[in-house]
Nucleic acid binder design. Sequence first.
DNA 1: AAGATAAGTGAATATTCATTTATTTATAAA
DNA 2: TTTATAAATAAATGAATATTCACTTATCTT
Lengths: 196, 196
Amino acid sequence: MRVRDENKVEAILQQALKMVVEEGFDGLSMQKLAKAAGVSPATIYIYFKDRDDLLVQLYQLEVDKYFDYVLDDFDPEWSFAKGLSVQWKRRAQYIIDNPDKAHFMEHFSFTPLNDKVVLTHRSKFVEVMHKFITGAIENKELVKMPLEVYWSVAFAPLYNLVKWHKAGKNMAGQPFELTDEMLEQTLGLVLKALRP
Amino acid sequence: MRVRDENKVEAILQQALKMVVEEGFDGLSMQKLAKAAGVSPATIYIYFKDRDDLLVQLYQLEVDKYFDYVLDDFDPEWSFAKGLSVQWKRRAQYIIDNPDKAHFMEHFSFTPLNDKVVLTHRSKFVEVMHKFITGAIENKELVKMPLEVYWSVAFAPLYNLVKWHKAGKNMAGQPFELTDEMLEQTLGLVLKALRP
DNA sequence: AAGATAAGTGAATATTCATTTATTTATAAA
DNA sequence: TTTATAAATAAATGAATATTCACTTATCTT
């Protein structure tokens, strides 16, 4: 039996991600992707049922990698300030180091394909987060609030800043570059918002 | 001379927006759009140079409408708390009342077409915002920070909550519905973050 | 070394795509 | 009413699309 070449499937996935970021979802065609990945179009269909399946699998793989990175070593018993700071900086580091992956994940979530995503890894992730903020609320380190409100206040500003940083321009089209100082300040503001 | 039918161009634009939201940018074809709008494909090319031009114009029109709504009656001389609250609630109202428009605008901004957008109305908007927060900083009503940091902390959480509300599920795929109480609380947290 | 089997492929399929062309239609001005 | 003109269209164009098919190739097992 001929052996499976894992480089091929990895090349397909990473080229697909790159093409979506550079040309949008409507810029991704199977033939162009095959050429970019150095395989035959038919090879893609060995590993993926169809185009949608490829994109959904790619998204799930990237989300898993991201959450693995963010959760690594995380201990829900940490103080709220430490736990949030560590998570926040991990996220910042990952998405600044991997702007294409971050852009793909966010872009994907606005796509109708988002409805096809099934959750595996993520439920574990949310469990840990839930335990973390429930504990923080009990210890009076965090104002009582729904998980979604916490998450939005804590992390949405970060994603927004990185989005503008990647685009090189702010909401008005003016040049914008994110600095460490801005990140520090934003984290400070977020901590201030959430502490009782 | 035959007279221009403005209903036609409006139908084209609104059907395009709807199709993008429901089927993604790769679900928008000119022939399907023409059929949905009740016109011939060739008619679209009377009003728009090509597919990209249609989408870019649509985006700019929607952004202009949104910002007009948000800016209406706004006075940069208001106190920081009042100015932010008014803006925040206006935004919340508009995007909750017009979920498709909001979704389209956000989705678009992750698309390569975003690079083709030129700014007219928006620079005036940013001017007003800049004056507002500069004044607030001078009056010691707002911590000193870049406009982009202010914007991200103030509004990104709102957009995130509405995004989950529209999807009907949160970051973990669990059912989610945004309540007025959550909105109130989020605004409160944002105000707390930004005030000295 | 031979056989079995899954990986991998190039070329073809029918379909859909964005856009154009030749033509008709409606209306404002004469 | 006639004329000029831009709006509007149906039908057509060639290019690009996702996917499949018949076939070849590499490698493990025997």
